[in-house]
Nucleic acid binder design. Structure first.
Lengths: 151, 151
DNA sequence: GGTGAAATCTACCTAGG
DNA sequence: CCTAGGTAGATTTCACC
């Protein structure tokens, strides 16, 4: 299990993965060498999946964020695998979930403009043989932005 | 604007922010010193907002992910600011969006178990004076997981 | 928890279009 | 004048004690 030091470590690495082992040690009351060892363990155990740069979507030219709900015409393993391959191919679809409730899939999408979003909905999603209905909701504002996981 | 090298750089830093300047240089056909300079510029210009560790929600004990739609009783600036403070205080609410369409807010939530999610819905969100209706949908599976932003 | 060799970063300098 | 590449001092990491 995770002890308090692990939690502090993970929390700080979520906040900024560029902290040096020395800085992390000061933040959680440990020596740099112990921090290194713990971090290696957390990586090996798969609690830390990797390290990534957070980009500003606006500034990299992605003005439109949207959530797209997709309903399938028929259910079954074959349409599902087919759809999974489709979303894997489209880089503007960054996340896909299946939820309890009405819609079959919820997609998170980043696009340069409305035209690109429309193209995705009309010519990619609705063009798919098993897709019955697509409803997109555009993000108007983001009050809280991909905050840390609570530990 | 972003040239092709910047895009390659950002893409690789999204994939793994621990690439050394040397490795990045090989990946985009540049010397390590130039990679450093470009990265500093991208950071200073705010295209890179920071560096973070990606955690595995399951393994850090967050078994439940959900999307929660919240509708307010009355609209206006005062209830909105009030609600913004509420979501800021709750670490299990990691993202909050306002969308076009029916619901006022969409929340992304991580919880240890269903009980914790229920507590959030019943005793935190519905207890808020301006909240009229709350509908939560639990994530059953995730086909695509917080992929890179398309560049 | 501490130490030292190896790797890495970054500021400065030089060269070319 | 702006962009690219090389070099050296300082910092960081990681295997070992």
């Amino acid at each position: 299990m995770l002890d308090q030091i692990d939690k502090t470590l993970l929390s700080n690495l979520q906040a900024d993965s560029r902290f040096s082992a020395q800085e992390l040690g000061e933040l959680c009351g440990l020596s740099a060498s112990q921090v290194s060892r713990r971090r290696q363990r957390l990586e090996a155990d798969g609690l830390i999946r990797g390290y990534t740069a957070k980009l500003d979507p606006q500034r990299v030219g992605l003005a439109i964020q949207a959530f797209v709900q997709v309903q399938m015409a028929k259910h079954g393993t074959e349409p599902a695998g087919d759809f999974a391959r489709l979303v894997e191919l489209r880089p503007e679809i960054t996340s896909v979930w299946t939820l309890t409730g009405e819609a079959d899939y919820l997609l998170r999408v980043y696009c340069a403009d409305l035209e690109e979003l429309n193209h995705l909905v009309q010519n990619v999603l609705l063009a798919h043989p098993h897709v019955a209905r697509v409803q997109s909701q555009i993000v108007m504002s983001q009050l809280k932005q991909d905050a840390q996981l609570p530990l």
